[in-house]
Amino acid sequence: MESRGRQPVADVALQGGNIAVAEVADRGKVLQKLRMTDIGFRWLTRGAAIAVLLILGGIIVSLVWGSLEAIGKFGFGFLVTESWNPVTEQFGALSPIYGTIVTSIIAMVIAVPIGLFIALFLTELCPMFLRRPIGIAIELLAGIPSIIYGIWGLFVFAPFLQQHVQPFLINTLGNVPGIGGLFAGPPYGIGVLTAGLILAIMVLPFITSISRDVFSAVPPVLKEAAYGLGCTTWEVSRYVVLPFTRVGVIGGVMLGLGRALGETMAVTFVIGNAHRISASIMAPGTTISATIANEFTEAVEPIYTSSLILLGLILFAITFIVLACARLLLMRLNARVGA
């Protein structure tokens, strides 16, 4: 063993046996085999990545193809028309677009602060023995199928809102000048607000678990230094943890927003499915995905089907715009910190 001296590890491995003659040939063979595996692996991963692009491209092409008829008939007016009338075949996407955006805003306004608070509590303040149970509970929320949220929303949550929460909101906030219009109208139980609340519960686990993971990746030395300077827990969270993790946090928020925009089943059950734009968030509305889920099976006329596919294309575009805005936001934030 000692006679070999300091040799590269690979050579030591190859010389492991006593067969001196076959050594050179074997080495070439082994290296060849390693190279082939690597080439195979490279193509496998490359193929998987290209497949994603092909599938995405295929979806876009088929959405555009399917919606050509509606684009031709309604043109740009489709985006700004509120009427959705299957009888006269006059279709406009304004109310589903409005509903999609408003429910998502309600969901994010509620879920983002709560999600961040839970994540900060879990990483900074929570006693060790409680961390796992709370963490698991949050993750279980993410595992519940959306149809369960829908049925629970319709049978349990909506009646509860109708009897206890909405009358209170109407009687208090409904009289406040300025925002009163948002909380006007009869308490139906289901409607835009209920859909937003259900969505908030559904996106909470995404925001919480991603924020928790990035928060716990903050180097302890940074936090300890801040505490050493006399910072409060709030100041450490606000000025050390959040700035350090903002890319991850925004990523989590965007993931949640993506789910809120596209969520179908749970929303369909509780939004009230009315093609109307109302000032009040208590009133029934509809979203793009709920409209498609409700009406696609019975849409016989080609222009009806085509309009529904065009709605799908619009949702696709909205999601793309939201993601692009998130990227821009991150780039600007990074540029500001860099400068």
């Binding site: 319709l154 409607g191 093609h275 029934p284 409700n294």
Partner: peptide, 29 residues
Amino acid sequence: KVGVNTALQWPVGIGAKGNEGVANNVANT
């Protein structure tokens, strides 16, 4: 004003999914 089809532009009200959805909403409201 409204017409006849499998789906309509309803002038008022809330939409519920399926017979069971309508039954449930009527029972609750």
